[in-house]
């Protein structure tokens, strides 16, 4: 009964009672700062694009140059995230399960794309894959041109997305229970069967999350791509670059339209990631 009355007393309270001071000022400051720095500017973008309406958004998105850039961005981001998925899994597996000299160093280096500023990555990738660069010269001999083509964009997006897959999958590989493998092996499964039917399924949610994170990052990526892409209209222009191009032409409405399309895609990716994680928590008990 006493509990009930306390509950009723606090029913109108926003926060649960606590002896710890400072809720008002820290919570208020958090909301104020968040609103001023993040929410208000983003709301301005949404408000400006709502002025255009769906018709206006569609008109911009279906301009041939914009449509080509959006297609380039999405298809290459998807391809890069897929390649990251495969090699990220191998890298994560090798770094977690095997012992070899320099393992720690390689493990630390996986985070390089997070730490290296995108402009630096951009010019060094361009230098590597340029026709006279380290890799570019060899690739030119076999007739493959990477720099200033779509392939160059793909390389930059692979670079930028790899750590997302590795860092999402690694902890799950570390948690895999050896008993499951032993059970599978003693029950007569081939190693390949164990890998496919015992080891891989619990990794699926993490792999999907890593894929979605790499994909979302690739869609918005700008700095590392523009130096190697060559930025040829209709061929190797990415959507973020087109925002910059529109701004340079003082076409604020066009830039706003592309930005809100990209923002919508990132939010959908964020939603998908959350759904995968919710499903994974239910199915496997971890993220």
């Amino acid at each position: 009964m006493i509990n009930l009355s306390v509950d009723r007393q606090n029913a109108w309270r926003f926060r649960a009672p606590s002896v710890i001071p400072g809720f008002g000022i820290t919570f208020g400051y958090t909301l104020l700062y968040l609103s001023l720095i993040v929410l208000f500017p983003l709301a301005t973008l949404l408000w400006r694009s709502s002025e255009l309406g769906f018709g206006g958004l569609y008109a911009v998105a279906s301009e041939p140059r914009v449509a080509a850039a959006l297609r380039t961005t999405f298809s290459l981001s998807f391809a890069a995230a897929f390649i990251d998925l495969i090699f990220g899994l191998i890298v994560a597996w090798v770094l977690t399960r095997y012992e070899f000299p320099g393992r720690r160093l390689f493990d630390a280096f996986v985070d390089l794309p997070f730490a290296l500023p995108t402009a630096v990555a951009g010019i060094s990738l361009a230098a590597l894959y340029a026709p006279n660069g380290w890799f570019g010269a060899y690739l030119a001999e076999i007739g493959v041109k990477v720099a200033f083509t779509r392939l160059g964009i793909l390389v930059a997006l692979i670079f930028i997305g790899l750590p997302f897959v590795v860092r999402t999958v690694q902890p799950i590989i570390a948690e895999l229970e050896i008993e499951l493998e032993e059970a599978s092996a003693t029950l007569g499964a081939w190693r390949l069967q164990t890998i496919l039917f015992v080891l891989l399924p619990p990794l699926v949610p993490a792999l999907l999350t890593g894929f979605a994170l790499a994909f979302a990052r690739a869609i918005g990526e700008y700095g590392s791509v523009i130096f190697i892409a060559g930025n040829i209209a209709y061929i190797s222009e990415i959507a973020p670059l087109l925002i910059v191009v529109k701004l340079e032409q003082y076409d604020f409405a066009g830039a706003t339209a592309i930005a809100s399309i990209m923002l919508a895609i990132s939010f959908i990716a964020l939603l998908v990631i959350n759904l995968i994680q919710a499903w994974s928590r239910k199915r496997f008990g971890h993220v």
């Binding site: 500017p41 983003l42 973008l45 990526e221 670059l241 930005a259």
Partner: peptide, 16 residues
């Protein structure tokens, strides 16, 4: 802010 493209982050301030 992590899920917003850097270019879009710049653009929103331009709009404000």
């Amino acid at each position: 802010p992590f899920s917003v493209s850097p270019v879009v982050s710049g653009l929103v301030y331009l709009l404000v």
